[in-house]
Write a protein that binds this DNA or RNA. Structure first.
Lengths: 341, 341
DNA sequence: TATTAAAATGCAATCGGTTGCGCAAATTAT
DNA sequence: ATAATTTGCGCAACCGATTGCATTTTAATA
């Protein structure tokens, strides 16, 4: 009850015989207002059950205190935790976060950007969809002077601030680790998509082989969508080669898991016969048998840093923003799937 | 370039020598506007690089086309996919979704509600935090006539529409399944929290035992936080009993996983010596060895239904809303961890 | 051709705060 | 005691789009 019509600052003003301006200032703790008035305003605000309307404020000063976050999908651990990391920071600064999923669909991504623009979000944080090859929608965001920061799935075609992990290093270290465990024919699961992370991991893979004088064998590089099923098929393909690999470094934990399943079905010893390593440190990797060696992407940290970088841009005003690239060091998590002892 | 000052419908109007009202109507495809004018408006809108401002529209008709979703944490698969399910529906109806995490923290939950109210979201969908025992903040939402729907973690203390799965049934079926596999001493991991889902699962457990004439043994019911570590400790505790259980039904997949680890470390055969079952169908459960029997909570479906229920309320206008309780049937996913064949 | 109905557009208020500028009262300085 | 500040608050425009009602233009009917 009580909440008949919406109560506004005008109602408060009326009841106190002052103006809405004063009420507004009082509520915002403006120093130009006396403490007495402030108290009175606060009191009647409670009495009348006043609920501020951010929309009106947002309209007035063109700031919504909302930032849009676009991820391919929110139900993958990695993205979910980055979002969590972003939210932690944003919330502390009184910003709300709108989460949008592109489902790796280009059109949806474009539409989402448009919707966020219409909603007048104060900025956008995004991880680019797998199939995106045209970046005009992101350029539009920038041209409107709206802060934009990309994380993980980024692109060089945009002069934009970005946060990612050193995928190259993560891959290099993993392959190096496999080599040190005695592996000599190391296969790699990668993606044909033009997403930098996969290209970087591939580069880390080839460079590590080269540095350790292991010949690069094209047959051992399997391209696919990196889902579990792709890993299964990739592994089967590898097992048909004249010479079987003695290790698989997958650019995705899921594909690595698929490979593990196939190996176990065929009673091939992991890691003795074939060592395995994935990428992302998905939660399940520690639960498999054997636990899967993988690379941690510092997801929450990445979210924190992305948000911090975002707010830096934000404060640094319209101009004078120089795009900045932050690269986090990934961490190799060596587990039994690759530890030959 | 070009985007000097913000261009509004007034700019379009000026350029065409018509009024803003006409532009507004044209943009909204109002039938009272001639096609010729509409085309002209659309054209100059593009020319001027016009970007609609939803905030102004929102202020005008008190609708933000945004709904707030509160989950304890967004990086758990279950919640992430419910959110995904909600988003699917909402997006199709041109609604955006603000995701907020309560981190199972009561104060944060209250603050979040307040923030969403200030943001004038058109409604709120929430899953209650574990530690919440006072529901005034939710009552406030209702008293303001803002649609509220709860999912999964709900409460009877609120006359509110809710969507959940039949936790009782899920538990009952699981225990029944274990019994049919020949288990006679079935332990249960549960939580001491006052969250209905755990109470229901416990009830399903006890009822199934009763129906199959298996004596209830208090020692076999372990209360804890249901994390992996709690499962490990619970299992160790159980193994110390004079008479070991021959099955464990855990109210959480994580705790079940902990139990599995302990059993494997001690070379206790699963499911022959101890059968295992969890709850939630977390993605990792199919990757464990043996794969873990569990109960699927239809998370995406739950999200879809929750959103649909929400929008029903929404349309049914202010009054005439009767709270409605939707219960989804869970699905027992019997895997090797419990199949004694 | 005059009359009326229908179609297309304009007018002006409104949504709920915010804010630059101005004015009067209270306080301090000279 | 008078001038110079400081303090506290009001006035009114404004943010950008929406909408009920009025008005004008066009088409239809008598």
């Amino acid at each position: 009850m009580s909440t008949k019509t919406k109560v506004t600052i005008h109602d408060i003003a009326e009841k106190l015989n002052i103006t809405a301006s004063t009420v507004s200032r009082a509520l915002n703790d403006n120093p130009r207002i006396s403490d007495a008035t402030k108290k009175a305003v606060l009191k009647t605000a409670k009495q009348l059950n006043y609920q501020p309307n951010n929309i009106a404020a947002a309209l007035r000063h063109g700031k919504s205190y909302i930032i849009g976050v676009i991820v391919p999908t929110a139900d993958r651990y990695f993205f979910a935790s980055v979002v969590r990391g972003i939210e932690e920071i944003a919330n502390n600064l009184n910003y709300k976060v709108i989460i949008c999923q592109s489902y790796d669909n280009y059109e949806k991504e474009v539409q989402t950007i448009e919707a966020l623009l219409n909603a007048r979000v104060d900025g956008i944080i995004a991880s680019i969809g797998k199939n995106t090859e045209n970046f005009d929608h992101f350029k539009k965001v920038q041209s409107k002077g709206i802060p934009l920061v990309l994380f993980d799935r980024t692109t060089d075609e945009l002069e934009v601030s970005q946060v990612m992990i050193d995928d190259y290093l993560g891959a290099y270290k993993t392959v190096e680790h496999l080599i040190q465990q005695g592996c000599k024919r190391i296969a790699h699961f990668t993606s044909p998509k033009k997403v930098s992370v996969f290209k970087e991991r591939l580069r880390g893979y080839t460079d590590a082989l080269r540095d350790y004088d292991i010949p690069y064998d094209e047959q051992l590089v399997i391209k696919g969508d990196l889902q579990l099923e792709d890993g299964r098929e990739g592994m089967k393909k590898l097992l048909k080669l004249k010479q079987m690999p003695d290790a698989v470094f997958s650019a995705s934990d899921y594909a690595a898991m698929g490979a593990m399943q196939v190996l176990k079905e065929r009673d091939i010893q992991i890691p003795q016969q074939v060592a395995l390593a994935g990428f992302s440190n998905e939660p399940f990797t520690s639960f498999t048998d054997p636990p899967l060696t993988t690379v941690d992407q510092r997801s929450i940290k990445m979210g924190n840093i992305t948000a911090e970088l975002f707010f830096e841009h934000f404060k640094s005003g319209e101009k004078g923003i120089v795009s900045q690239k932050t690269v986090l060091k990934p961490e190799l998590i060596a587990r039994k799937s690759s530890l030959r002892k």
